[in-house]
Design a protein around this nucleic acid. Structure first.
Lengths: 236, 236
DNA sequence: CAGTGGTCTAGACCACAAT
DNA sequence: TTGTGGTCTAGACCACTGT
């Protein structure tokens, strides 16, 4: 943990604790820098994190203020989903049922999203993720076999994320995602136990490693009553 | 436009033009800094923007690389929705039908989200937004009358965003959003012209000004076949 | 004018990875 | 060891705001 992160965490904690009034600006950057024994640039960087999180905002010529509406927020359900569901819901009882596990040549769409050609085999995995005994999400995932060798049912039953990062020593860099509402498929109705008129929240994602290669193209279909996707949007 | 933005734009353009090979790292920060006549910190900042956009990623000890999967992306449908729908769909024919326009005391939930007490009147607006003659989204919006005086039917028929920024001279700072799938209500079916089993994509948002005050609490309900929410997620 | 945040610099040292 | 990006500094100057 580097200095700007420590400072950022401390300020975040202070805000949560009500240490600073939300009607007044927090102390100016130079004062805070002195308090934390760092340069103004480092202080600014610590505050930048909180601005990007939607906790603080700045007003040039005025000061830095707390965004009131950030307090009454529930848990951030997503926004860090590339950490893998097992991590996201740490503390919960997460299990997986493997519905499909095959190796095949990719469709044109899948090949394009994974930046591979159609002769590179991919895993096709369909898994039902179960949280505290309740069906939570059905994930359909395509992964290049070349990039992620050695995936098997054992891996699928625990954590693919863990396998990629720990066993293969790869680093996940991020993802591009699309979110839409959808009608339930037969599979959804069967495994998510939803009614024919229950909508489904679908998250389409391309995940990529820190070497730039897409490592997964996935469709996560969630029960509409158990999943909310949250984001923060800060204008610049 | 400041230096790091100009540089950032130039690099983005080069990537789009295929000026840099996506298999090789782009030139290192010091080399680029020399080329652009800036310090390394400024160069880093320019590249930071592209990293946050999911265009580049860095690998310590290696270099900075292009994310291949960023190329085949369609238009970013959202992510800048705080600009207002009129701006988002510029060039399209956007009209509004005002379904409800009242002033009332807020419910507990609305008061909490807007950080006001229950004695501060709010506008309640329900608008159908129509894009190129097709129903696009129903927005139910609550706004404090104190913060946004003078809203009327004329404003609602053009752009509330424009009214807030230009007429009132306020600055929109950002928003917190939650996205979920939902069953269609009677209102949805009537105005969005969707079937009883067509799902709806709902975006719940709290928008806030650059003085930290929440200025709107809204529910935007979209036809499932006409709206996709896109995001980029970069790990740090 | 004074006080705030925004940008930019030149340079130092650290962390990581390949050679 | 070399070369990369990551962090941090001390200070300069600019832009905006309210007095």
């Amino acid at each position: 943990m580097v200095k700007y992160q420590k400072i950022s965490n401390e300020i975040r904690k202070r805000i949560a604790d009500g240490y600073y009034s939300s009607d007044q600006p927090i102390p100016d950057e130079i004062t805070l820098a002195k308090e934390f024994g760092c340069s103004r640039m480092t202080m600014k960087r610590a505050l930048d994190i909180l601005v990007s999180e939607g906790v603080l905002f700045r007003k040039r010529g005025h000061g830095t203020f707390i965004i009131k509406s950030c307090m009454q927020n529930t848990i951030n359900v997503v926004d860090r989903e590339t950490l893998g569901l097992s991590n996201l819901l740490k503390g919960k009882d997460v299990t997986s049922k493997v519905i499909k596990f095959e190796v095949k040549f990719p469709s044109e769409e899948v090949a394009e999203q994974l930046s591979i050609d159609r002769t590179t085999p991919v895993y096709e995995v369909i898994r039902l993720r179960i949280v505290d005994k309740e069906p939570y999400v059905i994930e359909q995932t395509y992964m290049p076999t070349t990039l992620l060798p050695g995936i098997n049912e054992t891996v699928l039953h625990s954590s693919v994320y863990k396998y990629i990062t720990e066993t293969l020593g790869l680093t996940i860099a991020g993802s591009h995602r699309k979110i839409r509402a959808s009608k339930p498929t037969q599979l959804d109705q069967e495994y998510l136990e939803c009614a024919p008129d229950d909508p489904v929240l679908e998250v389409e994602a391309v995940g990529f490693l820190n070497n730039g290669s897409p490592f997964e193209y996935s469709f996560s279909r969630h029960r509409y009553d158990k999943f909310v996707f949250t984001t923060v949007n800060i204008r610049r």
